[in-house]
Amino acid sequence: MSPDSSSSSGRRLDTPIGRRKLRISIDPDLIGNYSERAARFLGTGRYLLIQTVIVVVWIILNLAWVAIRWDPYPFILLNLAFSTQAAYAAPLILLAQNRQENRDRIALEEDRSRAEQTKADTEFLARELASVRLAVGDTVSRDYLRKELDDLRDDLRKLLERTDEALDEKSR
């Protein structure tokens, strides 16, 4: 077997094996959707009510029932729970805000594009309307034509009357 030939596995024998990395595929949209849901929930009155009830029950149980005190007076465990919650809630809320900013930016760009298109369409229609007005200004209107025909009829009547008068004078 020659040094350039491949083994049956398709790997070249003269090429070292690279490190194999554990690749975790995380969908950013999926994480973003979950973060937005969490941020929306953390900003509701329902969440605040639930959290308040849990804190009040926690404090009452730790102050009133001596037998089951798992977190004595300074409530260090409760404080740790709030710190942990804040450590996760703040980045989730920021991520949700960033995603909303991106959506707002895209919507603004689309609105600007639509506004530019609307402006261009309006300017085009204004030019077309002006050209139609110019074209209509050069055409004969019904009233103008009626006036001209009436004037022509009057002129013909006068001409006929003069002709009749001239013929009457000749015949006399």
Rank of each mutant, 00 (worst) to 15 (best):
D4T: 04
S7G: 08
S7I: 03
S8F: 15
S9N: 14
G10K: 01
R11C: 05
D14G: 08
I17K: 04
I17Q: 12
R19I: 06
R23Q: 02
I24G: 01
S25D: 08
D27H: 02
G32M: 06
Y34R: 11
S35H: 12
R40G: 09
R40W: 02
L42Q: 00
T44L: 04
T44S: 15
R46V: 11
R46M: 04
Y47Q: 14
Y47T: 05
Y47W: 14
Q51H: 09
Q51V: 08
T52S: 13
T52G: 07
V57Y: 05
W58C: 07
A64R: 11
V66A: 08
D71M: 02
P72W: 09
P74V: 04
P74E: 04
F75K: 06
I76W: 11
L78Q: 05
L80G: 03
S83W: 04
T84I: 10
Q85C: 03
L92R: 10
L92T: 03
L94V: 06
Q97L: 12
D104R: 10
R105G: 06
A107F: 07
S113Q: 13
T118H: 07
D121A: 10
E123Q: 12
F124C: 10
L125Q: 13
L125G: 04
R127T: 06
E128V: 11
E128C: 12
A130V: 05
A135I: 04
V136N: 08
V136S: 08
D138I: 00
V140Y: 03
R142Y: 14
R146P: 00
R146F: 02
R146E: 15
D154E: 08
D155F: 01
R157M: 09
L159M: 10
L159S: 14
E161D: 12
T163H: 12
D164F: 11
E165R: 15
A166I: 07
A166N: 09
K170L: 15
K170C: 06
S171H: 13
S171W: 08
